[in-house]
Design a protein around this nucleic acid. Structure first.
Lengths: 142, 142
DNA sequence: ATCTACATTATAATAATTCTAAACTATTGA
DNA sequence: TCAATAGTTTAGAATTATTATAATGTAGAT
């Protein structure tokens, strides 16, 4: 498991002070095998339940947004009622399970490269993202 | 210009009563050449300013959602802070101009067909949507 | 014309997010 | 080591978007 000093350095590098709260958040977010997708709500729950660390809501918002601005987190738009964040900040696509409301990362190999034929005058492409919505296939058969 | 009786019929067909408010909304939404992208806020403004029709906010929400449920409108997720709706309900992709916050429809021909290689067990694909974020190209040059 | 089910409305309620101002703390450098 | 200070956290208030409520109104069937 990565030690906290990694997080301290990481935070320092981008100019964020390594406070107790930010370190706890780093642990929750980045001390894991797989990419983590979450809403602010999920995160607050995890922090208070699992980490036994009560962090003010405002701090969670501030810190998540600080992380986002610094490129530690990426916001994903799926549902206009909820903000999802992703610890995988590289360009990648998603599946969204409409039954469970779960986000799943796509690998490079899951979706062929997207070819954009249209050009918008004076504009450059910042990102190309695909969202594949899936749901349980009820007519189970042949 | 399409006459209102078209809207009356249209509404009847899907089981919505053609009330004064819904007809006004139909006019704003569908009496236009091009696809219309809007937020609830945009729509309320248009109704009150251009159409001189004061409709209660609750009615606008209810009616937009009724239209959406019946397939007259499609919700587009771009920004978790705003709900965008689209009068083009067919499957299509979008450009999103991050400078102006404007949505632009893609034609079939603008983006090659997306090939999804991954399968999620027991799940079927409901939709595949591409969002291309663009912004002004400032390093104007060679 | 009357009835009934659905609509509209103003307003209250809720939920998500941001603001505020005071208290706190990590860093700097004397 | 110890202030000074600049950035941070916090509780709670404020704001914004959306939904619920309950009274009143209206379209469509009889």
């Amino acid at each position: 498991m990565p030690k906290n000093c990694n997080f301290i350095e990481k935070l320092r590098e981008v100019g964020l002070r390594p406070t107790k709260q930010r370190l706890k958040m780093c642990e929750v977010l980045y001390n894991r095998e797989k990419t983590f997708h979450f809403t602010i709500n999920d995160l607050v729950k995890l922090l208070s339940e699992k980490m036994n660390q009560k962090i003010s809501l405002a701090t969670v918002y501030n810190t998540v947004h600080a992380f986002e601005k610094k490129g530690y987190l990426k916001e994903i738009s799926i549902d206009s009622h909820k903000s999802y964040f992703d610890t995988n900040t590289s360009a990648h696509h998603h599946f969204f399970d409409e039954d469970t409301h779960e986000l799943i990362d796509c690998d490079e190999s899951d979706i062929d490269k997207i070819n954009i034929r249209k050009n918008i005058a004076g504009k450059k492409i910042n990102s190309v993202e695909v969202l594949v919505r899936v749901a349980s296939d009820n007519q189970t058969q042949k």
